[in-house]
Nucleic acid binder design. Structure first.
Length: 822
RNA sequence: GCCCGGGUGGCGGAAUCGGCAGACGCGGCGGACUCAAAAUCCGCAGUCCUUCGGGGCGUGAGGGUUCAAGUCCCUCCCCGGGCACCA
């Protein structure tokens, strides 16, 4: 007799899976393909609980689908570019590569210690020269297709990170999502990917994806599609004459409510609008200049979080815009709340039907016209709901949708403007002024301009002999050897791009490289991609709900259109699961909070299987988890009980002809197979574990009963239990299965319940009076409605609750329930 | 403000299609084993009342639909998340 000792069996099986290549998968594997992927981690050192949780789910699916007969692709790699390595280099002088490689070693081995299995032959690192080659290759394809471009733009500059950030990396309060510093606006030449050309597809293609609804909602909000119209207004003076004598001076506005145009009483322009100079009258110049200067001096945070009164947030320009619908001039204002980066940077204001316009109009004493009939009893200010239009010329009497269409038609016929869709989504700013990233493979030639590095010269690698100093400048900028090159076109002197790519670029295609990781002619072969993609199950944290997923979707669509992946591959991840966070004492676990519990601690005490089981058992996988030491002990207790049961150390085991109890034990085993399989399919791991615990409790009672357990029946039950737990607690199941059968549990087929064994001899039928349970009887599962009613009426409990009264009505749902209504 | 989730014992949670509320685990209590403890095994347990047969109440609050509601509908409260001058 030997006790359950995870410290012995876990290393044994981890080595076995690796040595046997159990989970290595070839691209010509005959089994039907299934691609399961956990978001590849940034290598920050030993695995933390979030990793364990993620990889426990992924590993369960890998093993479950393998036992189900699939050829499962389950790869792992490392998102190995990023700021921490560079910051460490500045601090210690250690090269980011050696720093990163050491952390990859650490993380890889701690992932192995939780028993998660992968085809390690496919491992990729974003900082590997081969990976860099193909990231750059893709960049050049995008550049060639016009999907990558360079422009000067007001960008988000983080003084803490000393780099620009994508819009997505700036939080709503105007701070950097990494460092928390207040982000500044700077005008710099930067590289962009043209994500906006896919805005509609990124939005529409979300619909059929089996993703958590809230992730889809976040993506839709981020894309922020809004339909409306754009139209031009002539800028005039108060009398309607061309402003400043310039008849070509027009202001273009975007609106989602062209139906309310008759109610426009003023118009508002962003302070950064290029026409500000020309639409300002000499008398208003002083105030306008002061206002623009004030807005400029404000940081993005101040501007966004201002609670200044509205009369201070806008200024009259002295010019007017001619409302094409009424031919009436309306005053043109500047206001800080109008954003230059959205639409045309100018809006028409309709205070009657827009609350913000109402507030601004009230503060500036501007007129308010109602163009939508208010319902009786309406007491509010701006009215944004539907209703018949009034004071609106040819739109009078129409409801909103009809009026919008009519207004746009009119604009188009008159030549003032047209239907227009706007998006909140912006192009992806991908250049970073950092060293530890994938270099952008272009050169600048005095005479030829911006040129791509020829494909044959890829990869462009950063030099090793660089000095890291806390100047905030990338060491590449002053590295003469790297900087100077020759122009691939004219052969003259040229300068290399020193910016590197956002690390989200690397993670936007790693799932494709996993399909064909050794390909040295292309980033991936189209056949390999066609075989595995899209990913059947993607698993990761909800913190990537917007950025990573949006970028990966953009890459997939772009690569599909460029012919690098199959034309019908439009989405990378058909099913997505986002796991909950781990909290300790109500707060998110993190190094900075100092409330970390480390997986290593538990692996060394109760073992990886107990740790995995706890993650599965503690609650629904999508919910946040409160860490609980006691809970993990309960899981360990269950495994120790299973160990003793499977080794025949519980109760008495005899050989005999099967009796009723033996049949019941076997029937329970078949019901368990059905239950656990169903629960796995619906991501209900906590109930699957509970069902296994319940089953083991029954087996204990069975084996410890006076009559003991029949060997054959107990074997059936225990073997099923080991097969069912094999994806959850793989070391323990593998060890016990080997002890009992000498074979590998993970090479067995997933068990199938015998339908004939599922129907019990009798079931409990509930008897209610007025919906309250008053009695229970054991009945045959196929009892007739008449028999069920007769049984109910014969019940003493029913008769006493009925008293002298008659049953007015009887609802029978045999064999589950009969409800007698007096 | 808008859009999603969610609110069930002392705690984590279960109840998959409107049909036994509280599975399973933790913690608690009792018993067995033991000189004793740990470990292990067995059992009890929503809450209140009880003549010990049982009965009342109970899934954030209030209303409704139904023979029957944690589950469906309406109003509201609270918690978590996302978005938020996007015209």
């Amino acid at each position: 007799m030997s006790d359950y000792d995870p410290q012995v069996i876990e290393p044994k099986w981890q080595e076995r899976w690796l040595a046997d290549g159990t989970y290595e998968i070839d691209n010509d594997d005959p089994r039907p393909p299934f691609y399961v992927l956990c978001m590849y981690p940034y290598p920050s050192g030993a695995a933390h609980m979030g990793h364990v949780r993620n990889y426990t789910f992924g590993d369960l699916i890998t093993r479950y689908r393998t036992m189900g007969g699939y050829g499962v692709l389950s790869p792992m790699g490392f998102d190995s570019f990023g700021l921490p390595a560079e910051n460490a280099a500045i601090k210690t002088g250690e090269h980011p590569r050696t720093f990163t490689d050491a952390r990859i070693e650490e993380l890889r081995s701690s992932i192995r210690r939780i028993g998660a299995v992968y085809d390690w032959r496919r491992e990729v690192h974003s900082h590997d020269p081969e990976y860099i080659r193909w990231t750059q290759w893709i960049f050049l394809k995008f550049l060639d297709a016009g999907l990558a471009y360079r422009k000067e733009a007001p960008v988000n500059w983080c003084p803490g990170c000393q780099t620009v950030l994508a819009n997505e990396q700036v939080l709503a309060d105007g701070t950097c999502e990494r460092s928390g510093d207040v982000v500044e606006k700077r005008d710099l030449e930067q590289w962009f990917f043209r994500t906006t050309v896919y805005a509609d597809q990124l939005l529409d293609d979300l619909d059929p994806l089996e993703w958590p609804e809230r992730v889809k909602v976040m993506q839709r909000n981020w894309i922020g599609r809004s339909e409306g119209a754009e139209f031009d207004m002539n800028v005039v003076d108060a009398d309607g004459r061309a402003f400043g004598g310039d008849p070509d001076l027009v202001l273009r506005v975007f609106t989602t409510r062209p139906d309310t145009s008759f109610g426009m009483t003023y118009t508002v322009v962003a302070p950064e609008h290029p026409l500000v100079e020309r639409i300002t009258s000499p008398e208003r110049r002083g105030e306008v200049d002061a206002f623009v200067a004030m807005v400029r001096s404000e940081s993005e945070v101040e501007r966004q979080s201002t609670d200044a009164p509205l009369d201070k947030r806008g200024v009259f320009t002295g010019s007017y815009a001619l409302n094409p619908f009424t031919n009436e001039p309306v005053p043109v204002y500047l206001a800080d709340y109008v954003l230059m980066g959205y639409g045309t940077g100018a809006v028409m204001a309709v205070p009657g039907e827009d609350q913000r316009d109402w507030d601004f109009a009230a503060a500036h004493g501007l007129p308010i016209i109602e163009t939508v009939q208010r319902p009786a009893g309406w007491t509010g200010e701006a009215y944004t709901d539907d209703g018949p239009h009034v004071n609106s010329g040819f739109l009078d009497g129409m409801t909103k949708d009809i009026a919008i269409a009519a207004a746009i038609d009119w604009l188009e016929v008159q030549g003032h403007g047209e239907r227009k869709v706007n998006y909140r989504l912006r192009d992806w700013l991908l250049s970073r002024q950092r060293f530890w990233g994938c270099p952008i493979p272009v050169v600048y030639c005095e005479s030829c301009g911006i040129l791509p590095v020829p494909e044959a010269d890829l990869p462009v690698l950063a030099p090793d002999e660089v000095e890291f100093r806390p100047t905030g400048e990338s060491p590449l900028r002053e590295h003469e050897g790297f900087l100077h090159t020759t122009c691939p076109s004219c052969g003259g002197p040229a300068r290399r791009e020193t910016d590197t790519m956002d690390t989200f670029v690397d993670s936007s295609w790693y799932f494709l490289r996993f399909c064909d990781p050794a390909n040295d002619e292309l980033p991936f072969g189209i056949d390999a991609v066609s075989r595995w993609m899209p990913v059947d199950q993607y698993i990761g944290g909800v913190e990537h709900a917007i950025l990573h997923l949006m970028y990966a979707r953009f890459f997939t669509k772009a690569l599909s259109d460029l012919g690098a992946v199959p034309a019908d591959l439009r989405e990378p991840f058909s099913r997505l699961f986002t796991q909950g966070m781990i909290r300790l004492g109500g707060a998110k676990m993190s190094k900075s909070r100092g409330n970390l519990v480390t997986p290593e601690h538990y692996i060394e005490s109760v073992g990886a299987d107990s740790l995995r089981l706890f993650h599965l058992f503690v609650g629904p996988p999508q919910d946040d988890v409160d860490w609980d030491d006691k809970g993990i002990e309960g899981c360990h207790r269950f495994l120790a009980r299973l160990w003793r049961m499977a080794r025949g150390e519980v109760g008495t085991i005899v050989d005999r002809e099967p009796d009723a109890a033996d049949g019941a034990a076997e029937a329970a085993a078949h019901r368990l197979v059905k239950k656990v399989t169903g629960d796995f399919e619906r991501w209900s791991y906590n109930t699957a574990v509970a069902a296994c615990m319940e089953n083991l409790n029954e087996l204990y009672r069975y084996a410890q009963s006076e009559a003991g357990a029949r060997r054959g029946s107990l074997d059936v039950a225990v073997d099923f239990l080991l097969l069912l737990t094999a994806p959850m607690v793989p070391h323990l199941s593998a060890e016990l299965w080997e002890q009992r059968h000498g074979t590998h549990v993970h090479e067995q087929s997933w068990p199938v319940a015998d339908e004939a064994m599922l129907s019990a001899e009798t079931v409990t039928m509930v008897i209610q009076v007025s919906g309250k349970v008053r009695d229970r009887v054991e009945v045959a599962p196929d009892i007739s409605e008449d028999d069920a009613v007769a049984l109910a009426m014969a019940s003493d409990a029913v008769r006493s609750h009925l008293g002298d009264g008659e049953a007015r009505r009887v609802v029978a749902r045999p064999p589950k329930l009969v409800n007698v209504v007096p």
